[in-house]
Amino acid sequence: MMSPHHPPTPHDDAPAPIRFPGRKADEDGRADALLVGLASRGDDEAFMALYRRHKNFVMNVARRFTRDESEALDVLQDTFAYLLKRLPDLRLTAKLSTFLYPAVKNIALTIRRKDRGVALTPSHDRALDDAPESPLSVDIKALIANLPEGQQEVLLLRFVDDLSLREVAAALGIPVGTVKSRLHQAIATLREDPRTRALFDMDDSG
């Protein structure tokens, strides 16, 4: 499933992103900081480029916190509305994801708190994906759900959302050493668990 044009480089801190089928490459090569600068001066095209670049990251994080597709869409909209509001005085020094992650998390948790008093309807419990999940996916999610919250966050940001160690540290506001420490602990848990041990049997991570 791996693209032949982008072989993994195991010891690189910021490995080239792994391309997956169905995942669109970012067609706009301009840096986030440049696009933010343009968008802050009213360039709607630049804002739309930022949206296209980061919408999936926002949706993924939102889904993880809300576990509901419609709520995740609300989070998506509120997050980019927040970005739009902050644009005039936003000075980006890192990737936009590091700015967006705390916003997504807070907005998602706020929405969940609001909905806590509402009686659950089928839509609230609706599976995120209508397609049935594979047994491995169920096992992985169950296993990760049992990890401490700090380990869950760094693991998913690093390997699902494809952020570098420094970006994860920036997004969470913690030192890079802490990120590495938590990642090692999370990976060790996965490696030792019988349900996911098979993923590590022919270890290609180096």
């Binding site: 594979s134 699902v160 993923l199």
Partner: peptide, 13 residues
């Protein structure tokens, strides 16, 4: 992480 572990994680999430 091994590549197949990364793929499995992304599929799960």
């Amino acid at each position: 992480l091994p590549v197949r572990a990364v793929i499995a994680l992304r599929e799960a999430y």
